[in-house]
Design a protein around this nucleic acid. Structure first.
Lengths: 222, 222
DNA sequence: CTGTCCATCCGTGCCGGCACCCATGTGCGA
DNA sequence: TCGCACATGGGTGCCGGCACGGATGGACAG
């Protein structure tokens, strides 16, 4: 399958759960053409690791992580090491974050519900600069993607802006508009305006649905 | 460490992410005294597996799962197979989950942030019917709990009544007092009174915290 | 039998969420 | 250059959450 003279791909593995890192490492290291050479527990560590080591071929990034999320880390890594391939690993096969991951410079998008063989294949596909469509997500993600391309401008729209996501998290965590305004040094009315835009964009009714959405999306913890 | 004539402990592994199951299985199967003999992707499958196989020694349960959460599954398993030990596996190293897990009948509680050695030790401790306190979690809450257990006192009971839990779920799902009142054929003011009592009993501030509590407790789905 | 818990209900009042309306400045791309 | 998206800010008004006060009846234990 892979040339035996070729050295194994050097992989950076990023997940906030040591147990998950350990398991994924066992899976990847069992392949002769893949080798995990570095681990990180959050996005900041991942960026630091990529800064230290310029021989990395692939970063496997979890999306939901404390401090810096996988998406933010992917943007940072794409700027820092343009040649580095990025494979996003996520708990939820959510369309919004599929497009978000692509926009952040990810080469692949794999939910944790896939089998280990699919993860290995996704890594190899990313290393060949090919998009990997995991089985079962073809229907949901790709069809909605194609629908949006056919009907709209052809560009998948980002669901919420960065600023809106910042406010989304704080609203979902139960902070009032006044508290958020004080925290971000803006008027509470602006917070309400953002909140209204977020609810409208995501098709939600109130803060409560927003909270459950944020938990589903892995933006906050229950 | 373990007697060589003793057969390995038969383990049921439950997690909705195939990737995580694969990783944990690799970790556990590497131990001579532990063997994963069954896997399940959600709580319902776990209960079905326990119903099929009455020779199970230990169930390793993820807390956050679709349909039936790990906490609900733990309650069900404790009723179905009283001799079966249960080890809760969770993304969140939160003390509140710890108590919820114990109330649900769990013997141990391990966050996914622990190393693989700690998971193995937690399994062995649960099989010996000993509580496993993972490193870095010796908080005052947990220590006081252990003191209470050692001194003979029972588990702290969940203070909400059945009727209150019924209303708790509906409130957490986003229904208004009027809607709940119509649903249960009572006055919206009565719903508000119950809600106020619930918030007071659980030490929560508002519906939003109530929602997150209900999700943590496995009462509703995100 | 009396006290306690539970479930049922009511009024008043404050505050925040949320839906509408509106305007301004900035940066970016057609 | 003109429009558009984004972030910023304001006003008004309704409604529901939530805190505080009260009451009643029924079940069950001491």
């Amino acid at each position: 399958m892979t040339s035996p003279v070729r050295p194994p791909a050097r992989i950076l593995l990023v997940d906030d759960h040591a147990l998950v890192r350990r398991g994924v490492r066992l899976i990847l290291d069992a392949e002769p053409d893949l080798e995990v050479v570095a681990e990180a527990g959050d996005g900041a560590e991942a960026v630091a690791a990529a800064r230290r080591d310029d021989g990395l071929d692939l970063a496997v990034l979890d999306i939901a992580m404390p401090r810096m999320t996988g998406l933010q880390a992917a943007r940072e890594l794409a700027r820092l090491r343009p040649g580095l391939r990025v494979l996003m690993l996520t708990m939820y096969d959510n369309e919004e974050y599929f497009f978000e991951a692509l926009r952040a410079g990810a080469n692949g998008y794999v939910p944790k519900s896939v089998a280990d063989r699919d993860l290995v294949e996704a890594c190899r596909a990313a290393l060949r600069d090919e998009p990997f469509i995991y089985p079962g997500a073809e229907t949901a993600l790709i069809r909605s993607y194609l629908d949006r391309v056919r009907s709209g401008a052809g560009l998948p729209e980002r669901p919420v802006t960065e600023r809106e996501e910042e406010i989304l998290k704080l609203v979902a965590e139960g902070h009032t508009s006044r508290e958020i305004g004080d925290l971000l040094f803006i008027s509470p009315k602006t917070v309400e305006r953002h909140r209204a835009n977020i609810l409208q964009k995501l098709g939600l009714r109130d803060r409560l649905e927003l909270t459950r959405y944020a938990i589903r999306a892995g933006l906050i913890e229950p």
